[in-house]
């Protein structure tokens, strides 16, 4: 994958370490919190306000039309100069909010679980459906999505129904990538420490490529370090967000053996 613009994400240094757990980060961990939750927790009844779309309505909306959703922050992928990219989710589906103008002060309020109302345009970029040019309101309410195990959906058309959701993959085997490595910096090994990590995992004879997105989970996060400790043949469980780029491209936030 080219990912020329992915590298740009490192600019947002205050970005989304929160999702991944970090020995050096005091930030809360949405993904970690979710992974440890035995069930979803809600601080409100989940009923949509007037004029707000249900997830089904959002999913059915045409591209380039205005959408209004109420959703809950799950992880923050980056912030710089009043703009943020955020994984959000309600009980029915995921909403990826891309490049939303927001102040540092409000960005800090968007802790995992925080309810927000987002108005923007439904867009698609290489298969990734997202809300762009968005505005927001912070509302009362809290919800942490549990990780949905989608291992059995890998390679199937139904997987896209869970795009942008917090998901898990279980019992997958690390396969070689590049010159028999367990992982690469960037998709072709052209990167260095701090760049995205790419690794291959297989299940039932099929191999898939997963990513540790360096802006969601940087070099000092547990998952980044864990992937660097992987060896070909390891059997692992993973959690992350079901990002899409010309097909499923999970952004992994946690790896356990």
């Amino acid at each position: 994958m080219k990912k020329l613009f992915k590298s740009v994400l490192t600019l947002s240094l205050v970005a989304g370490l929160a999702a991944c757990g970090s020995s050096s980060s005091a930030a809360g961990s949405a993904a970690s919190a979710a992974s440890e939750a035995t069930e979803a927790t809600t601080g409100d009844d989940g009923v949509k306000s007037e004029g707000v779309m249900t997830y089904a309505e959002y999913a059915a909306a045409d591209l380039d039309t205005q959408v209004v959703v109420e959703t809950y922050v799950q992880a923050k992928q980056g912030w710089w100069e009043n703009s943020a990219t955020i994984y959000t989710q309600d009980k029915d589906g995921g909403y990826f909010i891309y490049g939303m103008p927001i102040s540092q002060e409000d960005y800090d309020k968007l802790v995992p679980g925080q309810k927000i109302k987002v108005t923007g345009y439904k867009s698609e970029w290489s298969g990734e459906v997202e809300i762009t040019d968005a505005t927001y309101e912070i509302e009362d309410g809290n919800y942490i999505a549990p990780a949905l195990d989608v291992t059995d959906l890998l390679g199937k058309d139904e997987l896209i129904n869970h795009q942008n959701q917090f998901v898990s993959f279980t019992g997958m085997t690390v396969e070689p990538i590049g010159d028999d490595a367990a992982y690469l910096y960037n998709w072709d090994g052209s990167g260095t420490e701090g760049d995205d990590l790419y690794f291959n995992v297989s299940k039932d004879g099929n191999t898939y490529q997963f990513t540790v997105e360096s802006y969601l989970c940087g070099a000092d996060t547990d998952v980044y370090k864990a992937v660097k400790e992987l060896a070909v043949g390891d059997v692992i469980n993973m959690e992350g967000f079901l990002y899409w780029y010309e097909g499923a491209n999970p952004h992994i936030t946690k790896v356990t053996k």
């Binding site: 994958m1 080219k2 990912k3 020329l4 613009f5 992915k6 740009v8 994400l9 600019l11 947002s12 992928q77 980056g78 710089w80 100069e81 009043n82 703009s83 990219t85 891309y98 490049g99 970029w125 290489s126 802006y215 780029y245 491209n249």
Partner: peptide
């Protein structure tokens, strides 16, 4: 995977 073009633009500014 382009992502965060806006961030770059803001940064450059």
């Amino acid at each position: 995977m382009r992502k965060h073009i806006i961030l770059l633009a803001s940064l450059l500014m």
